[in-house]
Design a protein around this nucleic acid. Structure first.
Lengths: 95, 95
DNA sequence: GTAAACAGGTTTATAATATAAACCAAATTA
DNA sequence: TAATTTGGTTTATATTATAAACCTGTTTAC
């Protein structure tokens, strides 16, 4: 009847992050922060969780002299996102 | 960019309850329990929350000698559900 | 008739989660 | 060189979800 919803994706902020990365392929921390309206602390935690699950890859680099954190979605993440959307539809009756 | 998600609906079990009631108009507690696979305790709590928010109406009656709890969705609930689905689409890119 | 099991839940204790506040290091600006 | 800003991380707190324990009444078995 109802398919279970991946708890890692069923979170407003983490879903927004994944949604951005699905379209963008890669994004910097401050950009994600701005687009989602999240606080840096919250974003940092949620990025870690997605990264720990292998849904995204986090590259720590520098932009000039300043630190720069780049996030990319992985294949696993892409699949998980698609599965989540599919599962959600069993609740929403979206065709 | 991303529309906020009503926290009352952004919960696996509460969403399942609402989804059932959207199609069924009215359902008994044990039926919802069976369809959602929830424990009675969890279901009781979540039904209370939806009821307190005015998203559903709970009628306590009897079926023969046994207590029977009937749930119905309200107009408020229907609207909230529709708004939630709309908001979700900003994350999912569903047309 | 009464003990045991079951139906239909509710209450409450615990575990998990989300979130922001506090913090840190380095770079820039005044 | 002091203050401010950038780019975050860590940690404490509040919220939420969940199941275990419980309760009331009914049915069944003896």
């Amino acid at each position: 009847m109802f398919q279970p919803l991946d708890p890692l994706l069923h979170s407003e902020l983490r879903l927004a992050i994944m949604s951005l990365l699905i379209s963008a392929d890669e994004a910097e921390f401050p950009y994600i922060k701005e687009q989602t309206g999240a606080t840096a602390g919250n974003l940092s935690v949620q990025v870690d969780k997605l990264s720990a699950a292998g849904y995204i890859e986090v590259e720590k680099t520098f932009k000039g002299k300043r630190p720069c954190t780049i996030c990319r979605i992985t294949d696993t993440g892409r699949q998980a996102f698609e599965a989540y959307v599919k599962a959600l539809k069993s609740y929403l009756k979206v065709k």
